[in-house]
């Protein structure tokens, strides 16, 4: 048995034009420093949205608020129609939100294979884990070569591939990808974006955070532009 698209999407194919995620008037701070000032936008089932903006605009903070890493001081977030504002991160993940954070999104002290086991342990039945790991290796053969290597010894591109492989073999309902191509060589970056296309084809909704405006606009259906913690423009590409 293989899972080709998120179960949520297979059950709700009629929902395609309905909002999967509603971010409503969110405010958030890091200690005394306020980062978001009333951010609002929506993301529909099966669609992809790019969050754009310069450094310090609040893009990563929006991602962190959605996945529960930061509790907002004001506003609401709805996922699949239910409010998830302030819920624990692990609960939100189990609802089908996969957040690949900026930088190293893998466990450095674990091997490649152990990382994959961890990513898949809550996403697929136990008996399917071995099969899914093989599937991940078929997408990224380089990871197979390094399966017993600790993740901290992988290159930046390989670490991003490892983080994305989970979404490839057990597609989440919503994938939040934060600055995936940052600091990667163009050829590696191309490989990472190709895998994002694969994930989208499986029906996963994607919120992509990116500084490369052209690349993001090419990829996403909608664009939300942030500046100094506020939404300055929302448009379709």
């Amino acid at each position: 048995m293989t899972i080709n698209s998120p179960p949520e999407l297979r059950e709700n194919s009629s929902k395609k034009d309905q909002p999967l995620l509603i971010v409503d008037n969110i405010e958030a701070s890091y200690g005394p420093f306020r980062a978001l000032f009333g951010v609002s936008f929506t993301l529909n089932y099966g669609s992809s949205t790019a969050l754009l903006g310069p450094n310090g605009a609040g893009k990563s903070t929006v991602a962190r608020v959605i996945s529960g890493l930061i509790r907002p001081s004001k506003g609401h977030i709805y996922f699949k129609g239910d409010e998830i504002t302030g819920k624990d991160t692990w609960r939100i993940e189990r609802l089908g939100v996969a957040h690949v954070p900026e930088g190293r999104g893998v466990f450095a002290s674990l091997t490649v294979e152990e990382n994959l086991k961890v990513f898949l342990s809550n996403a697929v039945p136990k008996k399917l884990i071995g099969e899914k790991i093989d599937e991940a290796y078929s997408f990224f053969p380089r990871l197979k070569e390094r399966s017993f290597q600790k993740a901290e010894t992988l290159s930046g591109g390989e670490q991003r591939m490892l983080a994305l492989s989970r979404a490839l073999v057990a597609p989440p309902v919503l994938l939040i990808a934060d600055e995936l191509s940052l600091g990667l060589a163009p050829i590696v970056s191309q490989e990472v974006w190709s895998s994002m296309d694969e994930i989208r084809k499986k029906g996963t909704s994607i919120l992509v955070i990116e500084q490369n405006i052209d690349r993001a606009k090419t990829f996403a259906d909608n664009v939300v532009e942030l500046s100094r913690g506020k939404v300055v423009e929302s448009s379709s590409t």
Binding site: G68, L69, E93, F107, A108, S109, V118, S121, N122, A123
Partner: peptide, 14 residues
Amino acid sequence: RLVVESPKLAELSG
């Protein structure tokens, strides 16, 4: 082992 390395990353893994 995961929690000691990064509790937040562990939570992101469910």
